[in-house]
C-alpha cells in the first residue's frame, strides 16, 4: 500500500508541504549578497592580486556575474511567484508552479 504524498492519512498529521518556501529567494538572496561583497572587495584588489589571477580582475567579474544571476533569480521570483493551492486531499498537492 503506497502513500502518495500529501493528504489524508490515519493519525493527526496532514501534509504541510504547501508551506514550503520559495528557494529562489534564498539562492537569489545569497548570490546577490556574494556579488555585492565581491564587487566591493574588488576595489581593494592589489595589483599583485590581479596579476595572480592571470591579469583578470576576478573579484570584479565574479561579483558582477553573481549579482546578475542573483538579481535575475529574485526578479524571476517576482515575475512568476508561487501561488499556494487550496489543499487537495488525497493527491500530491503542492505549490502551484507557473511554468517549467
Amino acid at each position: 500500500m503506497t502513500d502518495n504524498g500529501a493528504g489524508t492519512d490515519t493519525g493527526a498529521q496532514s501534509s504541510r508541504i504547501t508551506r514550503l518556501f520559495d528557494i529562489r529567494l534564498i539562492v537569489g538572496g545569497l548570490l546577490t549578497v556574494y556579488g555585492v561583497v565581491l564587487l566591493v572587495m574588488s576595489f581593494w584588489d592589489s595589483s599583485e592580486d590581479i596579476a595572480k589571477g592571470a591579469g583578470i580582475r576576478l573579484n570584479l567579474w565574479t561579483g558582477i556575474g553573481l549579482l546578475v544571476v542573483g538579481l535575475g533569480m529574485l526578479l524571476w521570483m517576482r515575475l512568476a511567484p508561487l501561488r499556494a493551492e487550496p489543499d487537495r486531499t488525497g493527491s500530491a498537492g503542492g505549490p502551484a508552479e507557473p511554468r517549467a
Partner: peptide, 11 residues
C-alpha cells in the same frame, strides 16, 4: 507527514 519529510511531498 512522513511523505513530506521523506519524499518532499512529491510536489
Amino acid at each position: 507527514t512522513s511523505a513530506d519529510f521523506l519524499l518532499a511531498g512529491r510536489s
